[in-house]
Design a protein around this nucleic acid. Structure first.
Length: 647
RNA sequence: GCCAUUGUAGCUCAGAGGUAGAGCACUUCCUUGGUAAGGAAGAGGUCAUGAGUUCAAGUCUCAUCAAUGGCUCCA
């Protein structure tokens, strides 16, 4: 038998008989490894651990610790679920069933039958039974004709359609137990690796994502090689639910919605408005330092403004219907963005190159029609406020301006304890240069500037070619919240389009007219989304400088209410936001309520404190910190805030 | 917008054809209590909205509105 050389990740090269499988290799290393091998990466392709390797290759054995290992287990689980469904609901037809970031789904046509979460345990039970039968996943290559024949007889039009799009000679089937599927693979050696099973949810999904086509039933599930991991995962989901900004926003009285006002139109409650105002003040201060000028523009704009900007053509049909004047029939749109207004401010007078860069900032409230099914808490709404600004500059200034914006973004992230963020730079599609507006030289300059700035700032940016808007490259900031979920927040975008459309100009040193470059930027993105993410990030425990109520004074009994009042006024003189809980309740009760309201400091006052002018400090989530004077406490928390804000 | 599920007190939820229930929150009283729930009483609801079936509708039917989970979309 021929020998082949297999190089392993540790650098070693071992010799095996041709036709050796990943599993064989694992066994030759250790039985323990063999028990955990889910798939094998053979020269960068993920293969079945049971697929014979015929020539020299570098091989990485994939386990649950590798993302490809997880993907393999989940993909195989999708087949397992399909097998269970086929047995439980004969006649089911199958669309696609891939693995996803966490778990897998399968799109199924169940005819008239409806699956609800009451059916989940039944499906889970059947999946576990089938898994324990240790069914092997058997790969076989089939001709297109045979593949069509197989699913034709089965009457599965979805698979037939998929096969039509495939090339003969590239088609493989996987068979496990009673279920055979069209599939590229790879798969687990057998089903016994799947130990813990959970069907998570059911939803409708259009066949091939096309809303004109039939809606299939999509079943989501997740599986694990150990029950413990499933338990941990479910616990994490519970935790995520507890942090949901919709729940916490209600509990902490940050915002609410009203059917009367309309869906997707958030109402900021006093505490939320208070918090938001503090965020805005913080940013305004930074912007003033960075040379921004505040501007204010109206909430509506003449239809011609959006015809000029090009938004009318592109989004007019998907916007709120225009507002018309009663006499003249003039049409106005609720403004969906601030940039056209800011362009008009720029052109209210001629500019010299000496004026640039000009930076117009506005907390501009915009209105966009979002489909009703898309609305979601504060993260997807129909009316929201962008912390918007537009920088008009020369192409040479783009780099410095980018730098300045990034500094602001970093400052915000630091002040809010977002330590885990991802920076994405979107550049042109190298294969299709024609769809972009703006000169080759300027694009080149801007893209390089963005990359250089990221590098100079020591940011690890992901560069995604082809993701740029047609009008310019951009940089987006995604933060991970405490549960590892990704959210897109701030954005910086270079724009060559609007200056063109609005015919913006400045006079250069050469006394000729030039076109400025425009940079759109919003470090928070929108106040609504940002606050939503902030709530989930900090689980409702806002940073001290932001929290609506920093301290609550808890008198032991009403004998000390007068002293509590004195403490309150001292704190207020030191700019600390505080209140008194003088309800006729026991201290334990007041503490519990304050803990649940997530007030950072509880100041307990009684006989001892009143006599010595002190407070007994309890920190939310941590407990008793001991006694200190009112002045010392106030100074301490103010110092803490200054540190946070980098002052 | 599409599919599914849901809508009962400020909040969390029970009630499934026979005049509306609980806990928490709220008000009053008793209690004056030292680091996560003291006791009692009271008040609070067109059962999302509108139509229908029925002697009788939170409860069954339909429509509308809204929310939730997905799909499609996102300047």
């Amino acid at each position: 038998m021929d020998k082949i050389n297999i190089s392993l990740p540790d650098g070693s090269i071992r010799s095996y008989d041709a036709g050796v499988t990943g599993l064989d290799i694992a066994r030759s290393i250790s039985e323990g490894l063999a028990r955990n091998v889910l798939a094998a990466k053979v020269d960068e392709m993920v293969w079945d651990a049971t697929r014979p390797i015929l020539r020299d290759a570098s091989v990485t054995l994939l386990t649950w610790n590798d993302s490809e290992g997880k993907a393999t287990l989940w993909h195989s689980s999708a087949h397992l679920m399909a097998e269970a469904i086929e047995q439980l609901y004969p006649g089911a037809k199958f669309g696609i069933g891939p693995d996803i970031e966490t778990g897998f789904y399968y799109d199924i046509d169940l005819g008239e039958r409806v699956i609800s979460d009451e059916d989940f345990p039944l499906i889970e039970q059947r999946m576990k039974e089938l898994a324990s039968q240790k069914q092997a996943y058997l790969r076989r290559e089939v001709s297109k004709a045979d593949a069509l024949d197989f699913f034709g007889k089965k009457g599965d039009e979805y698979k037939l359609e998929l096969i039509q799009d495939l090339e003969d000679g590239q088609i493989s089937f996987y068979e496990s137990g009673s279920f055979t599927d069209l599939c590229r693979g790879p798969h687990l050696p057998d089903t016994s690796f799947i130990k813990a099973v959970k069907i998570l949810s059911v939803a409708g999904a259009y066949w091939r994502g096309d809303e004109k086509r039939k809606q299939l039933t999509r079943l989501y599930g997740v599986t694990f090689p150990k029950q413990k991991e499933l338990d941990d995962y479910l616990l994490m989901l519970e935790e995520a639910k507890k942090r949901d900004h919709r729940k916490l926003g209600k509990e902490l009285e940050i915002f609410t919605f009203s059917q009367r006002v309309g869906s997707g139109l958030p109402l900021w409650l006093p505490k939320g408005a208070d918090l938001r105002e503090r965020l805005e003040t913080f940013l305004k201060k930074e912007q003033r330092k960075a040379g921004y000028q505040q501007v204010i523009t109206p909430h509506i704009g003449n239809v011609n403004l959006y015809k000029t900007s090009g938004h009318y053509e592109k989004y007019g049909a998907d916007s709120f219907r225009p507002i018309t004047t009663p006499q003249e029939g003039e049409e106005f749109f609720l403004k969906p963005m601030n940039c056209p207004h800011h362009c008009e401010i720029f052109s209210h007078k001629p500019h010299s190159y000496r004026d640039l860069p000009i930076r117009y900032a506005e907390f501009g409230t915009v209105y966009r029609y979002e489909q009703s099914g898309e609305l979601h808490g504060l993260t997807r709404v129909r009316g929201f406020t962008q912390d918007d600004a537009h920088i008009f500059c020369t192409p040479e200034q783009v780099k410095d301006e980018f730098k300045g914006v990034m500094d602001i973004v970093m400052k915000i992230f630091k002040a809010l304890d977002f330590n885990d963020y991802i920076v994405q730079i979107s550049t042109r599609d190298p294969k299709n240069q024609s769809k972009y507006i703006g000169s080759e030289a300027n694009w080149e300059k801007a893209e390089r500037a963005i990359m250089e700035v990221a590098e100079e700032r020591g940011l690890e940016a992901i560069v995604v070619p082809g993701e740029a808007a047609f009008y310019g490259p951009k940089m987006d900031f995604m933060v991970r919240d405490a549960l590892g979920r990704k959210w897109q927040l701030g954005t910086i975008q270079v724009d060559y389009n609007l200056p063109e459309r609005f015919e913006l100009e400045y006079v250069g040193a050469d006394n000729e007219k030039h076109r400025p470059v425009m940079i759109h930027r919003a470090p928070f993105g929108s106040m609504e989304r940002f606050v939503a993410v902030l709530i989930e990030h900090c689980a409702g425990k806002f940073p001290l400088w932001l929290v609506p109520e920093q301290a609550i004074i808890l008198p032991i009994s009403d004998k000390y209410n007068d002293y509590a009042e004195k403490v309150l006024s001292l704190l207020q003189n030191s700019d600390i936001r505080a209140s008194i809980d003088n309800r006729n309740e026991k201290t334990g009760k007041k503490i519990r309520d304050a803990e649940l309201k997530r007030v950072p400091f509880m100041l307990i006052v009684g006989e001892k404190e009143a006599s010595e002018g002190s407070v007994s400090v309890r920190k939310q989530g941590e407990g008793d910190l001991g006694t200190e004077t009112v002045g010392a406490f106030a100074e301490r928390i103010n110092q803490e805030i200054r540190t946070m804000l980098g002052e």
